Computed example of a mutant assay.
Amino acid sequence: MGRPGRGGVVELHSPAHSDAVTCVAAVRPELCVSGGKDKSVAVCNWRSGAVLGRFVSHEHEVTKVSIKEFFSASRDRTVMMWELHGTSGPRQCFPGHELVVTGLAVSPDASRLCTGSRDNTVRKWDVETGECLCRAALSRNLVTHLCWVPGEPYVIQTSEDKTIRMWDSRELQVAHTFPGKQHIQTSCDVSQDGRYCVSSSSGFAGEGCEATLWDLRQTRSRVCEYRGHLQTTASCVFLPRGPALTPSIATSSYDSKVKVWDRDTAACLATACLEGAGPLASLAACDSSTLLCASFRSGIHVLQLRHREELELEKVAVF
């Protein structure tokens, strides 16, 4: 089934979730995992929209998913590890947080897991045994997101205290705190070369709502900001490099828009308005021209960058 879109037919598939989709992550080349308020984790083929597997062991809303290994976090205060093509039950469970788990980051060798929560703690786990190896608590550190720096022992963390921190995962100590922002930091991502981090801000009526690029290697300071969303920017990701695309960043917002930005000049290259989708909670980059966007009201949207007279970002499918 399909309907006309701005650039052609938008393929409409059966919804992957029965309620709001809160998080999505891409598994190359054509798989994705997602979580939602329906308490389930779904594995889908994003090209066809087919649901290939569903996992329903969480007792509350799923808040984060990660695909370095297949993990999910939930409002039930647990993290679960799954076999992508395995049985319906979790392979490993990681209980211990006292409030909703809001951050997941897996080490490059997939042997360690870092988690963060609204309980003000960050924890490190042994992936194989499920043992909590260490725990660090900071006052007012309500974690919103975690991201591991490729090839390094460092984990980037955003927080409701408006702060971005770099943790040294070896001893689970704060290695660096970036200059404070004016609004809650909602999400973060690290470039594949480990040189940059991008974070996103809450806000309203255009106040705040920006994404910020940070230098991780030299100055460890702010490089530039990306402004244009009118409500909270909920997610930010680096796009993989493509032959026809300048280094770019994508953001999604509660204003129902997804924007693609030139990383270095902060110019907005393309915008997609997903009318009726409600808040856009999570983004995932499948390749240099394909994005997945999780929405509260209308499932997961597949967006394609098209190189015409101007760069355009078009919705091509929903599931």
Rank of each mutant, 00 (worst) to 15 (best):
Phe238Met: 07
Glu152Met: 12
Val106Thr: 06
Val41Ala: 03
Ser289Arg: 15
Val24Pro: 00
Leu313Gln: 06
Pro95Tyr: 03
Leu291Cys: 02
Gly103His: 10
Thr219Arg: 14
Leu280Tyr: 01
Pro15Gly: 06
Cys224Val: 15
His13Thr: 09
Pro29Ile: 03
Ser159Cys: 15
Glu30Gly: 11
Ser66Gly: 14
Ala234His: 06
Arg170Pro: 00
Ala110Pro: 00
Ala16Val: 15
Leu269Tyr: 01
Cys93Gly: 10
Gly8Cys: 08
Leu291Pro: 00
Asp119His: 07
Asp215Lys: 07
Gln304Trp: 05
Asp161Thr: 06
Thr251Asn: 03
Ser139Gly: 11
Val237Asn: 03
Leu274Tyr: 04
Thr246Glu: 11
Gly228Pro: 09
Val106Cys: 06
Ser139Cys: 08
Ser74Phe: 05
Gly49Ile: 13
Ser48His: 04
Pro150Met: 10
Val316Pro: 04
Arg220Ile: 11
Lys315Gly: 03
His60Cys: 13
Leu213Ser: 03
Pro15Asn: 11
Cys236Met: 04
Gln192Ile: 13
Lys257Pro: 03
Arg227Gly: 12
Pro150Gly: 11
Glu312Val: 15
Pro243Phe: 12
Ser88Met: 09
Ser66Leu: 06
Leu280Trp: 00
Val127Lys: 02
Leu138Met: 12
Leu142His: 14
Thr144Tyr: 06
Gly130His: 09
His85Glu: 15
Cys286Asp: 04
Leu84Lys: 08
Pro150Asn: 09
